[in-house]
Design a protein around this nucleic acid. Structure first.
Length: 597
RNA sequence: GGGGGCGUAGCUCAGCUUGGUUAGAGCACUUGACUGUCACUCAAGAGGCCGCGGGUUCGAGCCCCGUCGCUCCCGCCA
């Protein structure tokens, strides 16, 4: 680090928000924005703001000229001013403990307005109970919104997290290598953003959904360890935690296995969280995909609370109860969760949970509660002692059960479990339960068409034992893939890649791209790279925006991205996308079919 | 692509249920007063295409239809 005050320039000596009692007696020149001012009549205070914080500048006839006081009284909020003065300790009763600079004030002798401001369209300085302006206004006037100390803190933290990430990886031999933004359309996955070529009529580049193939080619080229803070683009409908362009910490390495990537990632996550002031202790817990689905009904379980799913199928099979019986006969299972104290919930409350289960695709939600030693509910009169024992209800407990195929019951029970935890207030907001989910299936089989789709992506390697054991049942193969999960949120995921070009070609065939010419056309540049001598390699990518959001306690991804898009993928500040002159379209060999075009 | 919510002063919101004087409040803004405030205080003032279009009605911020924008969710996101 450079010693001393790097913020001193020919025009100012200090940052406003950096002044402390130790500066008392120093003459200073400050530049900043007028956050608020208080004119007491002949005595004026200005709260001057820069990215470091606020400092009170006082204008008093004892040290300031009448002209300076008049200037201070006249300046409008959000104007940029340069003030000269002396840092002085405030008398004890005038200290402001709410302000980092509250022990001192700057007794100003002059003020110069260098950037006068019109009245701001949205307020920057807010009272304690003032609500934020509507988000579209904040986005439209982003230059003002970004002045808010909260957003500045988020972006400053984001910067620090990026630097920690860079140095962590760089210190471990990873090279920060760049990949193209103008690239080739990807045949599967999300929709691409397309860029028309001017010199090649009718042809298009695509913006990368991820640098996946390029980073594998870096491995083929022998760079051994790669990382990139990579911008990625996906043209899909948006959510609170989804932007059309987003940033990934993208990592790939050679001569490594799953455990190497996990250990490296754990260290990096710990370094990032430490930078944000949190202790994280690797190694992280691990759980197979199969266990996750069995116990939690989803592949990214929130482990901050229990409410695990239990299987009652064996005990319920003999029951002469049509709901469970028909489900089991159709190949389904009877599974549910036990809620201690849930018997006290009202009919209406449980109905709401059933509605939730139905919205997740379940046909219904069976309930059984135990009060005064007696089980109540539609199944109650069919229960055998064995079934009662399996339910294992204590007095006051409620069981919520879904009888269906796992494909139906998993998402339903997942939703129910999350909602029950919320209602019970058993989610420890301060807990951080990191988890590796491993052994994902390679393929997802479409229940109707039987077609296979890659669960992770087509370049993921399969477990070799599975391939040998079930050569004709690829839907049983497990992938060498892993997801990093925190409190039910996916932070990142990756896999060991297929480095044998023949195996990669077989994978494409399984995915329905059997034609060799077609494979070469779509993925030739990867296959050629693999044929040229590819080391075993693998990697991972973390969603950096989401990590920033978590660590700055932001409610939305839009609070950690300087210039985000709306949920309609529109940029309200610079007003993109927008129409272009017809001649521009002509140059690109395009004609718009949009109405009114 | 589908569903829910919101849209009234520069900002945050009342008013809408049950249509009926001149559409209100707080903050911000302008002017004035005020020598230790820190969301300063006090007084006065200015500020409105009630998102837009159509309809019902003697009469619409309010009811109906459509549309646009923002937002949340489902689908989608290898």
């Amino acid at each position: 680090m450079i010693e001393g005050n790097v913020f001193a320039t020919s025009q100012r000596t200090h940052q406003c928000g950096a002044l402390r009692a130790s500066h008392a007696g120093s003459p200073v020149t400050l530049g900043g924005w007028v956050h608020r001012s208080r004119n007491l009549g002949g005595l004026v205070f200005i709260d001057l703001r820069d990215r470091a914080g606020l400092v009170q500048v006082s204008f008093n006839p004892d040290w300031a000229s009448a002209a300076a006081i008049a200037g201070a009284a006249a300046v409008g909020v959000e104007s940029v001013v340069l003030v000269e003065g002396v840092v002085e300790l405030r008398p004890g009763d005038m200290r402001n403990t709410d302000l980092a600079t509250g022990d001192i004030e700057v007794r100003a002798t002059s003020i110069r307005v260098v950037g006068p401001a019109v009245t701001p369209a949205i307020p920057v300085a807010r009272g304690k109970n003032d609500k934020l302006p509507a988000e579209d206004l904040r986005l439209r006037h982003r230059y003002l919104d970004l002045r808010r100390p909260e957003l500045q803190a988020s972006l400053i933290l984001r910067h620090r997290l990026l630097q920690v990430t860079r140095s962590y990886l760089s210190e471990r031999g990873f090279l920060e290598l760049e990949t193209p933004i103008l690239t080739k359309p990807t045949p599967e996955g999300a929709r691409d953003y397309l860029v028309p070529s001017r010199v090649h009529p009718g042809e298009f580049y695509a913006l990368p959904q991820s640098p996946q193939i390029y980073k594998q080619l870096f491995m083929c080229a022998g760079f051994d360890r790669y990382f990139q803070i990579a911008r990625c683009f996906r043209d899909e409908d948006l959510r609170q935690d989804r932007q059309p362009e987003f940033t990934q910490i993208d990592i790939e390495a050679s001569f490594i296995g799953r455990d190497d990537i996990m250990a490296l990632s754990e260290g990096m996550i710990a370094a990032i969280w430490r930078e944000a002031g949190h202790d994280v202790t690797p190694p992280f817990e691990r759980m197979s995909y199969a266990d996750c689905m069995e116990r939690y009904g989803c592949d990214r379980p929130d482990l901050r609370y229990g409410l695990e799913i239990h299987d009652f199928t064996a005990a319920f099979a003999p029951l002469d109860f049509v709901v469970t019986k028909s489900a089991i006969e159709a190949g389904g299972r009877v599974r549910g969760i036990r809620i201690a104290g849930g018997a006290a919930w009202s009919r209406k409350q449980v109905d709401e949970l059933e509605a939730l289960a139905k919205s997740a695709g379940a046909g219904g939600l069976l309930r059984a509660k135990k009060t005064d030693g007696k089980i109540d509910g539609p199944v109650a009169k069919f229960l055998t002692p064995a079934a009662e024992e399996a339910l294992a209800l204590n007095d006051g407990d409620l069981a919520l059960i879904v009888a269906a195929s796992d494909r139906i019951s998993n998402p339903a029970l997942d939703r129910i479990r999350q909602e029950c935890a919320r209602r019970l207030g058993i989610v420890d907001e301060h807990a951080r339960r990191f988890l590796w989910v491993t052994d994902f299936p390679m393929f997802d089989k479409d229940p109707v068409t039987g077609a296979l789709a890659a669960v992770h992506h087509p370049f993921t390697a399969a477990n070799a034992d599975d391939m040998a054991a079930y050569p004709d049942a690829p839907e049983r193969w497990r992938a060498l893939a892993y997801d990093c999960v925190l409190n039910g949120l996916e932070l990142g995921g990756g896999s060991i890649r297929t480095s044998d070009p023949r195996v990669q070609s077989q994978m494409f065939t399984l995915l329905g791209i059997g034609d060799v010419a077609e494979q070469e056309r779509r993925f030739g540049f990867l296959l050629e790279g693999l044929r040229a001598g590819a080391p075993p390699h693998g990697g991972i990518a973390f969603g950096f925006d989401r990590i920033s959001m978590l660590l700055s306690n932001g409610a939305s991804l839009r609070d950690v991205i300087a210039f985000p898009k709306t949920t309609a993928a529109r940029a309200l500040f610079e007003n993109a996308p927008s129409s272009v002159p017809p001649e521009d379209l002509r140059d690109l060999h395009l004609r718009s079919t949009a109405e009114g075009a």
